[in-house]
Amino acid sequence: MRDKPSIKEIENRFTDYKLTPQRRAVLEVFFENSDHHLSAEEVLQLAQEKNSDIGFATIYRALDLLEELEIIHKMNFGDGRSRYELTHTEKEHHHHHLVCLKCDAILEVKDDLLFKLEENIEREQEFKIYDHRLQFYGYCKDCQQKGE
């Protein structure tokens, strides 16, 4: 599992912004679902369980702010919906995704298969890499077994 930032580390990023109850509810959703890639609709549904007054506009503003503060990052898996996940720590910044074309399941690949390539690029190109992402598209085990 990837290292996730602590609540304290995240609170420290709110120096120029107020950590409102609505923003805290959205943060809690990400901490409680740190192994998921959540759409804005899923964040809304889960946040409303904590605070029924939260609406879509508040969710989108919170997502934009959390992304700006590098607490979450937005991903696009080609299904027309942006998904968000908690940003990992600098200790382990690489992870890759397997995306099922049938059921839209998103799985994380735990191994960093591009580590050597990244080292070569940094050395040969004198380019400091902050992060990289790789996505594989295909069919998950369940969809294969169903013959879909």
Rank of each mutant, 00 (worst) to 15 (best):
L69E: 08
H93P: 15
H94F: 12
F115P: 00
Y60A: 03
T87H: 11
D64H: 12
L117K: 11
L114R: 01
L69N: 02
R83P: 00
E108C: 11
E92T: 14
V43D: 02
L117R: 09
D53C: 12
E108G: 07
T89L: 07
T58D: 03
F115M: 06
F56G: 08
H95C: 07
L117Q: 13
L69T: 01
E118M: 10
S52L: 10
E42M: 06
E70F: 08
H94W: 12
N51Y: 05
E67S: 08
N120P: 00
H96E: 15
N76V: 08
F77Q: 00
K74T: 10
L101C: 09
D79P: 01
K102E: 15
D53Y: 15
V109R: 03
E108P: 06
E67L: 01
I59W: 00
E70C: 06
A62Q: 00
L114S: 04
E108A: 11
E108Y: 05
F77Y: 03
Q48W: 13
F56E: 09
E49G: 00
D64Y: 13
Y60K: 06
G55M: 08
D64R: 15
R81N: 14
E92G: 13
A105E: 12
E90D: 11
C103G: 11
L113P: 08
F115Y: 08
L86G: 01
Q45N: 14
L117W: 13
I106N: 03
L101G: 09
G78H: 01
I71N: 02
A62P: 00
H96R: 15
E68Q: 04
V99H: 15
E118R: 12
M75V: 03
L65K: 09
T58E: 06
K91C: 07
S52I: 08
K50D: 04
H93K: 13
C103F: 10
E85A: 06
I71K: 00
L114E: 10
L63A: 02
I106P: 05
H96S: 12
A47P: 03
Y84D: 01
H95I: 05
R81G: 10
T89I: 05
Y60F: 12
V99I: 15
R83E: 00
K74I: 07
E70P: 04
H95L: 10
E68W: 03
C100L: 07
L69I: 02
R81Y: 13
G55T: 02
I59H: 00
E42W: 02
Q48K: 14
N120T: 06
R83H: 10
H88D: 00
L69P: 05
Y60W: 09
N120C: 10
Y60R: 10
N120Y: 07
R61C: 13
C100I: 04
I54Q: 05
E92A: 11
K110G: 05
K91F: 10
E119G: 01
A105C: 09
Y60D: 11
